[in-house]
Amino acid sequence: MSLLREIRFTLNGVERRLSVPITMTALAMLRDVLNMTGTKYGCGEGECGACTILVDGQTVNSCIMFAVDCDGREVKTIEGVAADEQWRPLREALVEHGGVQCGFCTPGMVVQASHVLSKNPHADHHAIKRGLEGNLCRCTGYKKIIDAVAAVAGEQEVVP
């Protein structure tokens, strides 16, 4: 089928080297080639945030990123964020505050929220809402997700 290219990148801290079709999205590479299904397909058009991953510390919709563009970069997925103790309070807050219903949007929300909080550890409600604007959720009405992230932001120690 389509042309293959070899790429090397770090995925959740582990060096990876693989050949991917040049037309393949990063999302398809994660899900179909690497069988890491935590990252979700919600729209394939960069409109829902279900596929959010971190690339060199920035959140990206992996459905509109080519897999080959991961070359030489540091990629972190929900599996990586889940393994990171730093974000345990965030994950627990989502559970405690009831921010999870069907859960399909949740991995993308967690990745995005971790990003919002690492940029702005004391993000207020307004900043959190703005930060999560690109992540759609059909179940919760967002309120409990926002409350969960705000609780974490409030809890983080204020570094003078």
Partner: peptide, 11 residues
Amino acid sequence: TKRDAPEKTIG
């Protein structure tokens, strides 16, 4: 809390 929530937050 929802029983299936924790596993959902880790994908």
